[in-house]
Design a protein around this nucleic acid. Sequence first.
DNA 1: TTGAAAGCGTTACCAC
DNA 2: GTGGTAACGCTTTCAA
Lengths: 362, 362
Amino acid sequence: MATISDVAAYAGVGVGTVSRVLNKSTKVAEPTRSRVLAAIEVLDYRPSPLARGLSSGRSHTLGLLVPFFTHASAIERLRGVVAGLHNSHYDLVLFDVESPMQRDEHFAALTGRDRADGLLVMSLPPPAVELARMVSAGVPVVLVDARGAGVAMVVTDDVEGGRIATRHLVELGHERIAFMGEPPDNPFGFSSSALREQGYREVLDANGVPRDARLVAYGAHDREMARRLATKWLTARDRPTAVFASSDVQATGILAAAGDSGLRVPDDLSVVGFDDIEISSYVGLTTVRQPLFESGRIGVELLLSALEVDRSRKPTRATKNQRPWSPPGPHGEVPEPIVRELPLELVLRTTTARLEQRTVGV
Amino acid sequence: MATISDVAAYAGVGVGTVSRVLNKSTKVAEPTRSRVLAAIEVLDYRPSPLARGLSSGRSHTLGLLVPFFTHASAIERLRGVVAGLHNSHYDLVLFDVESPMQRDEHFAALTGRDRADGLLVMSLPPPAVELARMVSAGVPVVLVDARGAGVAMVVTDDVEGGRIATRHLVELGHERIAFMGEPPDNPFGFSSSALREQGYREVLDANGVPRDARLVAYGAHDREMARRLATKWLTARDRPTAVFASSDVQATGILAAAGDSGLRVPDDLSVVGFDDIEISSYVGLTTVRQPLFESGRIGVELLLSALEVDRSRKPTRATKNQRPWSPPGPHGEVPEPIVRELPLELVLRTTTARLEQRTVGV
DNA sequence: TTGAAAGCGTTACCAC
DNA sequence: GTGGTAACGCTTTCAA
């Protein structure tokens, strides 16, 4: 495979010149330029991204950290990321996280400069140490569906989401409303589910609907698990008449459990989910929609613009006699981190209905 | 950020030694070793993958080329890839392909050495030029759901898949069986749909079922498009009693069209899909299952083992006085490329039924 | 506008 | 075992 000096030799110019035409630097005479281009063509030359990266200090790569990559909601966000990356000339490196250990490994790797020019972190509150390291290393980071001090983020109001779902159920006349979520004390620090539950509680209390601890259950983000959990509820004597699940995946499990128990939805049981993943429209699930695709797209958008700013301010590499560049801050003029809050919306489909009076107390 | 020489200086050793402990080369005395480790710890040193790659000739990266990344089947394959990559220490770089131009760009980029150590190509027959270039560059390539001369591949027998689906319908007594697929003359050279159609034709002919050109339709891999196409069929006087769709996505569109037309499935219309994506089990679609997840997992598996072999044979880089290594072949001992054919299986659910005699000729 | 040369941070070779 | 040093292929000064 030809190198830049092969090209230079063939074209009868110096490597610097070849580099200049490669990087569209205008300071190259037209005849020289075309000679170089011809040489590139003939030798089928392709620049080495590795060498380019090492030399310029930019890897032209974006790192994407996603927990449970296989979840429909993560995939949907990923779609948005890929869409937002089109025509950007950045490569996307994917890091799937399935365990806290893996999370830490990946964070450690990505934290060192030059693995990625920028980092997109999904649904994962970064450990404080890692976050600090990134910020101090000057690596632009954007958090999607997660929060962290001092970095840009794309979020939704989960508490409000919980309120929206629960309010809908209360307005339909339900009083025995169950909540199914994910364990609040998980090793990753995911908090969405707990926040949605908070909204659920608020609305129940505000409407004087008595809370019943037995109507709150936690399980893994998994259809079958939700199905088992729901079955316990549905076969009990004083079963709930409605359920709010903190994810559509769990909601579909609840739907399945209802079928198992011979309960009709929405006549005998109302179900509200959260997310609005693709499957939800197929099964007619009423749910709180969050803009998953958009969150990914906006995430990269923020990251790309941060990278843009970065490039114009920061020298590509420390040159010999030049005082080292340092991040923003000596005068406390740390810019307010960007926070984009995406809207939540109740999508009414066919799994919720007004509580039939005859059902009460059966 | 600390470099290897910072570490060397701090530990009072040479950079070579640091490199040795980093690469777990045993040739280093225990006391030295721990001193280096301590220095690494103190300085919070992280090796630069870029520099490492440039020097060693390996980027520790695998390239994944996927067309229409957003399709459920692609995602399912990708899940397999990610699963197969766990604990492998390779980074995954994702290249989504949405147009022939994009395909060529990405192929061109990935073909140059050092972008990726190995390449996984999905559902995309590589242009002959690119394929030749990769092979001659010695970059291991594995094709998943695509075929190409001289490279490893993971495939299924699409013609047989078409036979399986059609045979099922014929055995249920259907005679007006439609086929919906994707355009046979697409710019990417996808051939799965055409091959499945071939199987469809074979079975029809073998059973003396007359073929009707009006019962063959092509449209994009898109639910709504399929819905529109199917509506034309279903509202015609001599409508088909069964449809074989070359993908589950199209099949769900057909199901929707049936609903629009007031046709009951499977009583009035039988539908068989292809793929068995997640949604299919939700809607009870009878389909020809292909191991999507497995195809991805096995694909990386093949790639990783090719990389392994590669590493043991090929010098990491040309050293000064040493004749250049060349790919296998002077004595025609080109190894037979590995071809893994994955099994197809008919998954019976609730969208197909025996043709009711009363329906005939209505 | 151009060529020469100094890095970029590693690995791998070659002596000691 | 270990240190020194030449690559690796590029970008970016610095002179000319």
